[in-house]
C-alpha cells in the first residue's frame, strides 16, 4: 500500500513538472541534442550564497525546426505578453510570462531564408 501511494505521488510530481514546462521548453530540450545545433545552458549564481539567480538556455539551429518552434510560440502566446516583429531580415517573437517563483522571457529569432532559415531560441528564467 505504501509503495502504491509513493508511486502515485511520484506520478503526480512528474505530471506537475511537465505541466509547468511549456511546449517551448519541451521543444528546446528535444532539439538541444540533435546534430547541427548548439545548445547552451548557462546558470548564473550568487557567488557567495550559490543561490541560482538566473538560468539562460540558448539554442541555435538551422532548417525545419524553425516551423515547429514558431508554432510552439504561437500556441503559448495566450499565456503571457506576446509580440512579433520583423526587423532587418529576421522575424522576432517574444513571450514573457511569470509565476510565483520565476519570471520567464522566451525569444525566437528566425532569419528570412526560405529553405534553410537559421533559428535562435533563448529562454531566460529569472528566479524571484
Amino acid at each position: 500500500m505504501k509503495r502504491l501511494i509513493l508511486s502515485l505521488c511520484m506520478l503526480v510530481a512528474v505530471a506537475v513538472t511537465s505541466a509547468a514546462q511549456n511546449s517551448i521548453d519541451r521543444l528546446v530540450e528535444n532539439f538541444s541534442s540533435v546534430g547541427n545545433s548548439t545548445f547552451t545552458s548557462a546558470v548564473e549564481r550568487d557567488s557567495k550564497t550559490h543561490r541560482i539567480k538566473k538560468v539562460v538556455k540558448k539554442l541555435t539551429l538551422e532548417g525545419k525546426p524553425s516551423r515547429e518552434l514558431r508554432k510552439a510560440f504561437e500556441d503559448e502566446a495566450h499565456t503571457g505578453a506576446f509580440t512579433e516583429r520583423n526587423d532587418n531580415g529576421e522575424t522576432v517573437l517574444m513571450l514573457t510570462t511569470q509565476d510565483e517563483k520565476t519570471n520567464r522571457v522566451y525569444m525566437l529569432c528566425i532569419s528570412d531564408e526560405k529553405f534553410y532559415p537559421k533559428t535562435e531560441t533563448t529562454i531566460i528564467i529569472k528566479v524571484k
Binding site: 541534442s33 546534430g35 547552451t40 545552458s41 549564481r45 550559490h50
Partner: peptide
C-alpha cells in the same frame, strides 16, 4: 573555485556532444 561558485550546473551541447 570562482567559476564553480558563479556558473556551477552550466553546460553546452554541440552537435549532440555535451
Amino acid at each position: 573555485r570562482q567559476l564553480d561558485a558563479r556558473y556551477a550546473g552550466s553546460y553546452v551541447i554541440v552537435d549532440g556532444k555535451r
